[in-house]
């Protein structure tokens, strides 16, 4: 089985998010980057599925050379080889076109992404890739098993879940429950240095939209404390002041 895992390089979850250039660009100064946490889940499941010589894993990232440490980490966790499409990952539409264009030449059985990236929270890449390749996609998988050439997936729906079966090849966005993220061991880290990382030129993709600026949400706070022995006061405040009950 040939598996492709799509990696997004995102700010560490503790990052303070600020903007520059009149709030038109994300301020990358001092930001630590990590593998998108949902992509780590995808990668961990890929490593399980490809174990015992049952498959090979390629990781792909659309981005600039600064992301190479993130790619090497994925190789250390267990991917066999990596591909980086050398371009600024302008938006999901652009990224998906790059990945689909690469995947077209490779006949992957399974393409995994995270359910969303924690920077732009789009959940778009999986659906775009699948549509560009003309294959099925599942946006939020909570469980994923492969038998023969079928994937069995538990998908999240509002207030419940759905078990679905879909033939390979398929694109699946993974969420918690699919696998526990893996921490690279020493041997993995050593071998990652010599695993192949191919750099490929990007293709042109016309833009359909773009982000014009960012705002930070208004600060919250000024908490009103209610005494623990007078909780009815909270009920009154929620009713007459906040008007939420």
């Amino acid at each position: 089985m040939k598996i492709l895992v799509c990696l997004s390089n995102v700010p560490d979850t503790t990052s303070k998010i600020t903007f520059t250039d009149n709030n038109t660009a994300f301020n990358t100064a001092g930001i630590q980057y990590i593998i998108n946490p949902y992509d780590e889940i995808a990668l961990a499941r890929a490593v399980e599925l490809a174990g015992n010589g049952q498959g090979t894993i390629t990781v792909i990232h659309v981005g600039e050379a600064a992301a190479d440490p993130t790619i090497r980490k994925a190789l250390a966790i267990g991917a066999d080889q990596a591909v980086r499409i050398d371009a600024y990952p302008r938006d999901a539409w652009f990224v998906a076109h790059q990945i689909a264009s690469y995947a077209k030449t490779q006949n992957f059985d399974l393409i995994l992404t995270g359910r969303e990236s924690i920077d732009y929270n789009g959940s778009l890449v999986q659906g775009y890739i699948a549509e560009l390749l003309g294959i099925p996609s599942i946006s939020i998988a909570k469980k994923l098993d492969i038998n023969d050439s079928q994937a069995t997936v538990e998908r999240e729906i509002e207030g419940g879940k759905e078990v679905i079966q879909v033939p390979l090849p398929v694109v699946i966005g993974t969420a918690e429950g699919v696998a526990e993220p893996k921490i690279p061991n020493m041997r993995g880290i050593m071998s990652a240095r010599t695993k192949p990382l191919e750099v490929i030129q990007a293709i042109d993709v016309p833009a359909l939209s773009h982000i014009t600026h960012f705002d930070t949400p208004p600060p919250r706070g000024n908490v009103k404390l209610v005494d623990k022995d007078h909780v009815t006061q909270l009920v009154e405040l929620l009713h007459s002041e906040a008007k939420v009950i």
């Binding site: 999901a92 959940s123 659906g127 775009y128 599942i138 939020i140 999240e156 939209s209």
Partner: peptide, 23 residues
């Protein structure tokens, strides 16, 4: 932009060459 909507929106947008406002 429900769980199912997240799966649909990018596929519809790709079919129609549409710009997509997600979320």
């Amino acid at each position: 932009n429900s769980f199912s909507g997240k799966g649909l929106a990018p596929r519809i947008a790709a079919k129609l060459d549409a710009a997509l406002a997600d979320g």
